[in-house]
C-alpha cells in the first residue's frame, strides 16, 4: 500500500470490550464492535474511502456490513454520500456484521480496513488528499 498517515492517539481503535455477538431472531448470526476514529479530529462520513471487514483473512460481503452512529445505521455504499454526518473522534461508531451462524468456536482474527481522506491536506493537483489509515485488527476467542 502507498504511504498513508497514521495517528493512533488512543491505543484501541477497535474497542476490545465492545465485541459482541449479534442475534437475528434469537440466533447468533454475526457480531458487532465499536470503532474510534484514529485521528486528532472528527471527519464527515463522506471522507471514508474504504471500509471493509475481514474474518481470518476472508473479506465479508460488503452488503453484510453496516456503520451505525448516532441512531443511524448505514450500509457502506452510502457513507460516501454522507456529507452532513460528522463523526466525532471521541464518539465510537458501531460496525455490524451479518454472518450466518456467527463465528465458529476457536480463535479468529477480525480485521477492519478503514481508510479516509484528510480533507484539508491537499497533496497533489486536483482531488488528491492525504490518506489516513484508521484500520485495526482484533483477536477474538469464541468459547462455544
Amino acid at each position: 500500500m502507498a504511504f498513508a498517515m497514521r495517528m493512533q492517539l488512543n491505543e484501541e481503535i477497535i474497542k476490545k470490550d465492545s465485541f459482541k455477538d449479534m442475534y437475528i431472531n434469537n440466533k447468533r448470526n454475526g457480531f458487532s464492535f465499536d470503532v474510534q476514529l484514529g485521528y486528532y479530529r472528527g471527519h464527515y462520513l463522506s471522507d471514508i474511502d474504504l471500509l471493509e471487514v475481514y474474518i481470518d483473512g476472508e473479506k465479508v460481503d460488503q452488503e453484510a456490513v453496516t456503520f451505525a452512529y448516532r441512531n443511524k445505521e448505514l450500509p457502506v455504499y452510502k457513507l460516501k454520500y454522507a456529507i452532513t454526518e460528522f463523526w466525532s473522534q471521541v464518539e465510537p461508531a458501531t460496525i455490524h456484521v451479518i454472518k450466518k451462524g456467527g463465528l465458529a468456536k476457536g480463535n479468529h482474527k477480525i480485521e477492519l480496513k478503514l481508510m479516509l481522506r484528510v480533507p484539508y491536506m491537499n497533496i497533489g493537483p486536483g482531488h488528491m488528499y492525504m490518506p489516513l489509515d484508521s484500520g485495526d485488527v482484533l483477536d477474538v476467542r469464541v468459547e462455544e
Binding site: S46, Y120, N122
Partner: peptide, 12 residues
C-alpha cells in the same frame, strides 16, 4: 475552523 475542501468523494 477547518476548511474541508476534499470532503466530497468525487470532487473538490
Amino acid at each position: 475552523a477547518n476548511n474541508d475542501r476534499g470532503m466530497r468523494h468525487d470532487r473538490d
